[in-house]
């Protein structure tokens, strides 16, 4: 069916543009990524398993995925709140606040990293008030959570915001007419409509946090077994010329990213069906 449509299309340039797209995609993305898979395939199974399950590597998964999970949860709660406030309420400076939400996308990760480390170090702007309370953020796993929250924040806001914009107020009016109070309307009418987009935002923020490197290494302290993230471990292996080790761990990370990409695609399909 689809193939026949092309014959009716008078627009030129399908062959060259599609050809170039596939060529450039293969050259820049697909062939280099396949190098990683082929390099890993060069290892024996037991070599691969012993590399990716070494205690230091396992500890880094725990730190990375655990911190990313907490950061994504914090972002889901505050992200929904921010999106709701931005769409539904009017207050001064709303436009600037809305634009500023994307700052973590635009600010280079190294800049975010050194800045967060400075603010939250024991004599920094925020750190000096937390120090007497016995709370240490910089150079502990808490610092990793903080940096991951920073870089993941726009994902939840920007996925949930358009969905809130599209909610028809008639639905809320109907709920009120049927006797619901505001809390019941939020809980039973609005929340179920937002849920797919909240989960999508959660997954996007989690996926970004897992792969993040630049904003974390300055604040993490990078102690093996305690606050060493997996991307840093890959770089450490590379610097020791342990290419096999780096490749094997990278392959595990890539597999994790692809599973999350698949999950996100399914979630987005679900949320779109809900919207229509």
């Amino acid at each position: 069916m689809k193939l026949f449509k092309r014959h009716n299309n008078v627009l030129p340039g399908f062959g060259p543009t599609l050809g170039f797209t596939v060529f450039y995609l293969s050259l820049i993305v697909l062939i280099p990524l396949s190098a990683l898979v082929f390099r890993t395939a060069g290892l024996t199974w037991s070599e691969f398993i012993s590399t990716v399950t070494a205690p230091r590597v396992l500890a880094s998964y725990k730190v990375t995925f655990g911190a990313a999970m907490i950061a994504a949860m914090i972002n889901s709660i505050f992200g929904v709140l921010v999106a709701w406030v931005l769409v539904r309420y009017r207050f001064p400076s709303r436009g600037i606040v809305d634009a500023l939400v994307d700052l973590p996308f635009a600010l280079p990760t190294a800049v975010a990293g050194i800045t967060l480390a400075t603010i939250y170090s024991p004599n920094g702007w925020v750190g000096r008030y937390l120090e007497p309370l016995g709370i240490k953020i910089a150079f502990t796993p808490l610092g990793i959570v903080l940096a991951m929250t920073f870089i993941g924040l726009p994902f939840v806001v920007r996925t949930v915001q358009p969905v809130i914009e599209e909610i028809e107020t008639e639905l809320e009016e109907a709920a009120v007419c049927l006797g619901a109070n505001r809390w019941q309307t939020l809980q039973r009418v609005i929340f179920p409509m937002l849920l797919p987009s909240i989960l999508t935002g959660f997954a996007l923020s989690f996926a970004r946090a897992v792969g993040e490197y630049g904003s974390i290494i300055f604040i993490a302290g990078n102690m093996p077994m305690v606050s060493e993230i997996t991307p840093l471990l890959i770089i450490t292996k590379l610097e020791q010329f342990d290419y096999q080790g780096a490749t094997a761990i990278a392959c595990v990370m890539l597999l994790a990213s692809f599973s999350m990409l698949l999950l996100i695609n399914l979630l987005q399909r679900w949320s779109r069906r809900y919207a229509e």
Binding site: T21, V22, L25, V29, L30, I31, P32, L33, A35, L36, R39, T109, A207, V210, G211, E212, Y213, G214, P231, L232, I234, I235, L238, Y243, A246, T247, A250, M253, L254, S257, F258, M260, L261, N265
Partner: peptide
């Protein structure tokens, strides 16, 4: 094709560098 074009966004930056080291290193 659209999914493949988006692929680089879901790969860790560290891995994005590593793959070129594996080819040209």
């Amino acid at each position: 094709l659209i999914t493949l074009i988006d692929l680089p966004f879901s790969v860790s930056p560290v891995i994005s560098g590593l793959i070129y080291v594996l080819i040209f290193g």
